[in-house]
Simulated assay, not measured.
Amino acid sequence: MLSEREQRDLAIIEQALRAEAPELDRRLRNLRARAGTRHLIVAAVVAVGLVLFAAAFALHSADALLLSVLILLGAASWVTVGAFAMYARRRARR
C-alpha cells in the first residue's frame, strides 16, 4: 500500500506522462480495457464449463460431461494461445 505522499507523487508523474505522451496514454488505456474484457470472458466460459461439469456428474450424463470438458479445454487453449502471443510480441520488441 502506498502512503498518501507516494500516491500524490505517483499522480503527479502520471499527469506529466499524459501531457508529454498522450499517444502512449491512449494505448495503455486501450490495453487495460481489452485485457479486462478478455479476462471476464475467459472467467465466464470457465464458470459455465465447471457448472456443466458438476451437472454432468449429478445427472450421470456422458454427453454433458463431454461438452463440459470440451468447453474447459477450449478455454484453456484460448488462454494458452493468448499467453504465447503476448510472449511473442514482447520478445519481438526487444
Rank of each mutant, 00 (worst) to 15 (best):
A11H: 08
R90C: 06
R18Q: 13
L31D: 08
E14T: 10
F53A: 15
V51K: 05
H39L: 14
L50A: 14
L17F: 07
A47E: 02
E6I: 04
L59C: 05
L10D: 01
S77E: 14
F84S: 11
S61Q: 07
I13P: 01
L31H: 07
G74V: 02
L59E: 14
A56M: 00
M86L: 12
G36I: 04
L2C: 04
I12V: 13
L52G: 07
L50N: 03
E6C: 03
L73W: 05
V69Y: 04
I12P: 03
T80G: 10
R89M: 10
N30S: 10
I71D: 01
A64Q: 04
F53T: 05
A76S: 11
E6K: 10
L24F: 05
F84A: 13
R89E: 14
A56I: 00
R26S: 10
A21Y: 08
L67S: 07
A47N: 03
E14W: 04
H39R: 15
S3T: 15
R32Q: 11
R5S: 09
R34G: 06
H39I: 13
G36Y: 00
A35G: 05
S3C: 08
V48M: 10
R27A: 13
L73S: 11
L66I: 08
A83R: 12
A11I: 02
A19Y: 01
N30M: 11
L31A: 12
R34A: 14
R32S: 09
F53I: 01
G82V: 04
E6F: 03
G82Q: 05
A55N: 07
T37E: 12
H39Q: 15
I71R: 00
V51T: 13
A62S: 12
R89L: 09
D63M: 09
A35W: 04
G74M: 00
S68G: 02
G36P: 01
P22Q: 08
D63P: 00
Q7W: 04
Y87H: 13
L66Q: 06
L59D: 12
V51L: 15
L67Y: 03
V51R: 06
R5H: 06
D25G: 06
M86H: 13
A58P: 02
V42H: 03
R94A: 11
R34Q: 12
A21W: 04
G74W: 03
L73K: 05
L10F: 10
L66M: 09
V46C: 00
R34H: 08
A33F: 07
R5V: 11
